[in-house]
Design a protein around this nucleic acid. Sequence first.
DNA 1: AGCTATGATTCCAC
DNA 2: GTGGAATCATAGCT
Length: 486
Amino acid sequence: MSFSICVAQCTDSLAATMDDQARIMQSIGGVSLAGHSVQGGMALPPPHGHDGTDGDGRKQDIGDILHQIMTITDQSLDEAQAKKHGLNCHRMKPALFSVLCEIKEKTGLSIRGAQEEDPPDPQLMRLDNMLLAEGVAGPEKGGGSAAAAAAAAASGGAADNSIEHSDYRAKLTQIRQIYHTELEKYEQACNEFTTHVMNLLREQSRTRPISPKEIERMVGIIHRKFSSIQMQLKQSTCEAVMILRSRFLDARRKRRNFSKQATEILNEYFYSHLSNPYPSEEAKEELAKKCSITVSQGVGSTITVSQVSNWFGNKRIRYKKNIGKFQEEANLYAAKTAVNAAHAAAAAVQNSQANSPTTPNSGFQMKDEEFQLDSAESKNTLLTNMFTGSSGSFNLPNSGDMFLRMQSLNGDSYQGAQVGANVQSQVDTLRHVISQTAGYNDPLGRNTMYGPHGLSANGGWQHATTPSSVTSPTEGPGSVHSDTSN
DNA sequence: AGCTATGATTCCAC
DNA sequence: GTGGAATCATAGCT
């Protein structure tokens, strides 16, 4: 849709209208030349050289004038110009034009009367409403953020998908800009063309009968033509918005696996909160942030709070459905967290030693050394054994009775499968360390723990304690302290 | 191509 | 509004 097309369309319409006028002129001329009296209720002034009583002479006079008008194009330019000038200066010209205009007006009304004042186009109204709703038309309101939110809501939550939203907004803003630029162009073109046509008609009104009403009508025709072009613009804009919206929704549905680091972070949290794997909003935010940071360094994508919620929802249900399958994973993460904890505790102790060199801590050192001597694998095995209770903290079918109860650091009990003396010594050591370091916070800032609580008899998690926050552990006397205890 | 894993969505109950 | 359960749709592997 270009300006040239628009102008061409308007010109066509104008030409058609002018053809109408020419036909009218001809018919009027024909009537007059045929010798009938001119209608319109207006008496012509007495023709030149007559006293006004000679009706035939007057008719002849008008007939001559009209004949000259009709044959003016057959003459040479100079001759025509001279004749034209003569006619323009003729004293009867204003009266004749006035009558002709009146006749034209009447004929024109009967022809176009039905077309005048057509009601507002319902389709145009629909388009206008839609563009307003999408934030494309009307005042700027954040580039259609409302529409983006609506699209997100329509797709089932995830209202915080800021990245997709910003993309959507950016694209919508682009569409909006294009729409407004084009609209402005059309309006400018319309005004220019209208002015041009008006000037032309005013100019022509000196040589042919054109009434102000006719000019007005012509302006109306031009405006209608332009508004129909505007409708096309609005239609294409609406289509563009629709396409953008559907793509936006499609993109949201497309699945992409989280990065390894992100999954690890989520898994670590899940298995360290196996007793109650329901992170609070803050915890989710923190996890999302953590995952984002980790991921953005690698892949460049982020994970939102909703995605964290989805992940935990899926994880809970899948874990519960097939605990056996996740056992290994649970052990792995439990061990991992424990190792981290042990290292952190050791670091803390070394720090405290550095700060107070007079405090001997040979006992721990020896034990820690012993611990360090183990290969990572054996450490894992050891800790896995210790943590059988962590993943097995649920009342698993066929396993509930075999768990041994073991006191945790702060008095809570663990359900461990094979806790040997060696393990016990490690526990004692770490207990000692913990007592010195006043607890260990896991990488997420929370005291990690493998609680004794698990799936209740009906298969659901027991919400005895709510260790949901990553940042603010609210552990009562009955709760389990850090996983370092393991 | 078929299978499994997994993120997202939908429906329902609370 | 949140979570469980079922389901969809796709990624990734064999």
